[in-house]
Design a protein around this nucleic acid. Structure first.
Lengths: 150, 150
DNA sequence: TTTACTGCAAACATTTTGCAGATGT
DNA sequence: ACATCTGCAAAATGTTTGCAGTAAA
């Protein structure tokens, strides 16, 4: 999983120093279990480090994103959300549209399907992206019960 | 496919009037065979209708998008592109990363895969999105040849 | 001392909104 | 007359950049 140390290591391996700010970002990001926005992360960070700059967050997110530690995804309501993910293997995201929690989905059989689509159309496929949205088990249950949100 | 009339009809069916501007937009959009930006569409439209406003384009695109006549997709370089598509059936897009041309991909077997993922995780899946990027046959060929772009 | 990091404010690109006037019914 | 549509300019949003100061190597 994505412990803060792992994320900090990502910074290090990419040649960035493990500064207090990055430590803080790593810490917060590691604790995110649902998609978060740059603005939200900034607010959280400022609770612990009041003067922290907006740019610092964006720069950190940019680095983490290029390292696949986080992924930037466009939610169904067209807002953007960053999600933490495992940089080591190609995967996709399934996000709960009620509570926002998400799970990683292994690429699995999709790879074969993608290959075939490429073959069928003569395209040399370079990348693909699959995003799934739905209601998670917990929310399904609470809906069944009688339903207010999280 | 998406003839101008069909698009104009989409406007009509949604309760919007088939004004000259919308006619023009419908016309241009119908002729798009690769992803286009709002700005690009505006420029094209202004070639025929010099004073046409930016907002008109955005408003038209918003309507067409809500009607699934166009789809707004995020390209690998993080820019946004609108693509024309068939509003009648759920499908996905395969876009050439060299020339920009795209083809619609029927959902086909993906539906089954998505179902299974949902079942496996207990999610009630509501929607999914698959985007594919690669090099189209023509570009593959021209690369093989010796290669400058389109 | 040299390089990396940071906050700040300004710059940016993109999209949205409010409004007064034009247009169509 | 009435509602809809339009262009315009301003505002809002989300993100990036330049810069001068600070901290670290």
């Amino acid at each position: 999983m994505s412990t803060p140390e792992r994320i900090l290591d990502a910074f290090r391996r990419a040649g960035y120093q493990p500064t207090p700010n990055r430590r803080l970002v790593a810490d917060l990001v590691a604790g995110m279990h649902e998609p978060f926005s740059a603005a939200g992360l900034l607010e959280l960070a400022r609770r612990r480090q009041p003067g922290l700059g907006r740019a610092t967050i964006f720069r950190a997110l940019e680095v983490l994103s290029s390292l696949s530690v986080v992924e930037r995804l466009v939610l169904p309501d067209a807002s953007v959300g960053y999600v933490v993910c495992d940089p080591d293997e190609h995967h996709h995201h399934l996000v709960c549209s009620r509570c926002g929690r998400g799970v990683d989905i292994a690429d699995g059989e999709l790879a074969g399907l993608v290959d075939e689509i490429g073959r069928r159309h003569g395209y040399r496929i370079q990348s693909h992206r699959l995003e799934l949205f739905g209601v998670c088990p917990a929310c399904v249950k609470s809906e069944a019960a009688g339903g207010g949100e999280a």
